[in-house]
Amino acid sequence: MATRFLERLAGRAAGPRLPETLLLADRAVPLEVREHPTARRIVMRLAPGGDALRLTVPRRTPARTVLAFLERHRGWAEERLRAAGGRVAVAPGIRLPLRGEAFRLVHDPALRGARLEREGDVGVLRVGGEAPHLARRVRDLLKREARRDLQAAVDRHAATVGLLPRSLALKDTVSRWGSCTADRRLAFSWRIVMAPPAVLDYLAAHEVAHFREMNHAPAFWALCRSLCPETEAGRRWLKREGPGLHAYDFGP
Rank of each mutant, 00 (worst) to 15 (best):
A14T: 15
G15Y: 01
P19M: 03
P19S: 08
P19Q: 00
E20S: 15
E20N: 10
T21L: 07
T21D: 09
L22Q: 01
L22Y: 01
A25H: 03
A25F: 12
A25R: 02
R27L: 12
A28H: 02
V29A: 10
P30H: 09
P30N: 04
P30R: 02
E32A: 04
V33T: 00
R34T: 15
R34S: 15
R34C: 15
E35A: 15
E35T: 10
P37S: 05
P37D: 02
T38Q: 14
T38I: 06
T38Y: 10
A39C: 06
A39L: 12
R40K: 15
R40T: 13
R40C: 06
I42Y: 06
I42S: 05
V43G: 01
A47F: 09
A47M: 06
P48W: 13
G49P: 01
G49N: 01
G49Y: 01
D51I: 14
D51K: 05
D51V: 13
D51A: 14
A52V: 10
L53F: 03
R54F: 09
R54Y: 11
R54N: 14
L55Y: 13
L55W: 15
T56P: 04
T56A: 01
V57M: 00
P58Y: 08
P58I: 11
R60A: 08
T61C: 03
T61I: 00
T61P: 02
P62M: 05
P62Y: 10
A63G: 07
R64G: 07
T65S: 02
T65I: 10
V66G: 05
V66I: 12
L67P: 11
L67I: 14
A68I: 09
L70S: 01
L70M: 07
L70V: 06
L70N: 02
E71F: 14
R72A: 15
H73Q: 11
R74F: 14
R74C: 08
R74H: 08
W76A: 08
A77P: 01
E78I: 08
E78T: 05
E79S: 09
E79G: 12
E79P: 00
R80T: 00
R80E: 02
R80W: 00
L81Y: 00
L81T: 02
L81C: 04
R82W: 11
A83R: 15
A83K: 15
A84M: 11
G85F: 06
G85V: 12
G86E: 14
G86W: 11
V88F: 00
A89S: 11
A89R: 15
A89T: 15
V90Q: 04
V90L: 10
V90E: 09
V90N: 12
A91H: 13
P92H: 10
P92M: 00
G93F: 14
G93C: 14
I94T: 07
R95Q: 10
P97N: 09
P97H: 01
P97W: 04
